[in-house]
Design a protein around this nucleic acid. Sequence first.
DNA 1: GGGGTTATCGTCGTAGTGACGACAAACCAC
DNA 2: GTGGTTTGTCGTCACTACGACGATAACCCC
Lengths: 229, 229
Amino acid sequence: MPRLPAASVTVDLVVLTIRDRALHVLLVERGIDPFAGAWALPGGFVLADEDLDAAAHRELAEETGVAQGIHLEQLRTYGAPGRDPRGHVVTVAWLALAPDLDEPAAGSDAAGARWWPMDAVVAGDVALAFDHAAIVADGLERARAKLEYSSLAAAFCPPEFTVAQLRAVYEAVWGVAIDPRNFHRKVTGTPGFVEPTGGTIAEGAGRPARLFRRGPTETLHPPLTRAQS
Amino acid sequence: MPRLPAASVTVDLVVLTIRDRALHVLLVERGIDPFAGAWALPGGFVLADEDLDAAAHRELAEETGVAQGIHLEQLRTYGAPGRDPRGHVVTVAWLALAPDLDEPAAGSDAAGARWWPMDAVVAGDVALAFDHAAIVADGLERARAKLEYSSLAAAFCPPEFTVAQLRAVYEAVWGVAIDPRNFHRKVTGTPGFVEPTGGTIAEGAGRPARLFRRGPTETLHPPLTRAQS
DNA sequence: GGGGTTATCGTCGTAGTGACGACAAACCAC
DNA sequence: GTGGTTTGTCGTCACTACGACGATAACCCC
């Protein structure tokens, strides 16, 4: 058997959630070099004979403490030489969409972990290690695009949610205001997008909202267009 | 510096083209074990300190003999343990869309290379090595989806093409018949999708068709829906 | 109860699409 | 040439979906 060229393979996670009506991304503070003190995406090396999605799920559970109810999909793979000073490291990036979780527990190899507002990260207010700024940007764009033609927005919501909560997801991810009446018509009028549970919930002032859960529909035809208003 | 876990990294290419109004995929016949005699996607190992897209472009040029005018985008990364009997091999798959090329030249490490009709490959009439059947399926689905909301269909066409040629791309990739009049209206009515060159071309019977080239528009708003007829 | 707030339902005008008719401009057979 | 065939291009019509926005329902606080 010939000897094969080798590189190190890691997984990195772009974990997104909505907090206080704004999009946030989970970052960990690096405790060791390279980039000690900088913020990085949660991730780590793929173990021997470990599948890539298994590694992603493992890292996600380690960082968030939550193993289920989180959407996880492969984003893209990055392997530019020099992206990691330790050598040729290829990283498979994943996109995770989570409902609002509690503060993350610090991982064993990280000095700390916290949710950062996406606005601050995109604006460059956070020093990011490696090429993680580009990975975050790709993850954001993927999330924005996927909301258009899929029912993925519900992945940011708890199992039961209101139309207003779902609308808040779109507004936070897209950064635009959406007309509540037209959004309500689209969401409830698309067969299988959401299903009423029969219950209602009152959140502060205003008429109580009906509760819904995710329906079987995965794709939206026609899509929700991003240039709504 | 700690010793890092290592795996082998390869690139594999799903190269699609339209031949005789049908979608085809480029496959090479393996000359060596594992899977000697089976058909596989063109690809190979990523060299030391080589970027992933550089490796993909290099393999594409080696297999097709054409270096430019071919759309290339990353598809997905596959790393299930056991997908390669030689050990833990992670492959970064790429999707390439090419205009109708001549018969490919056999690569140095392949016994032969040829275009296979996608229908035959999907139907399982071709013995595919590794997990390449799944990769081809993912590439096909990506191409089908991208035609909806992007101007990527022109990547299957020569620099100057007719509306009918572009329509043939959609019909071949989607496997459906499209109304020529509505398609013509959509294509010519979307600003920046195609630009008339001023020339015309007569292909056999019928009125000569105007020639177009690709316009600056990359995305289609609203998209072309796949359920046209 | 009155005012404020949010949820939900309707209405209207318009853009985009599917179905399909009509004409234009080439080819072929005779 | 003449007529029939084939393919490209333009137009019409009905229907759907959406943006803008009015109206009503059902709660809160005071």
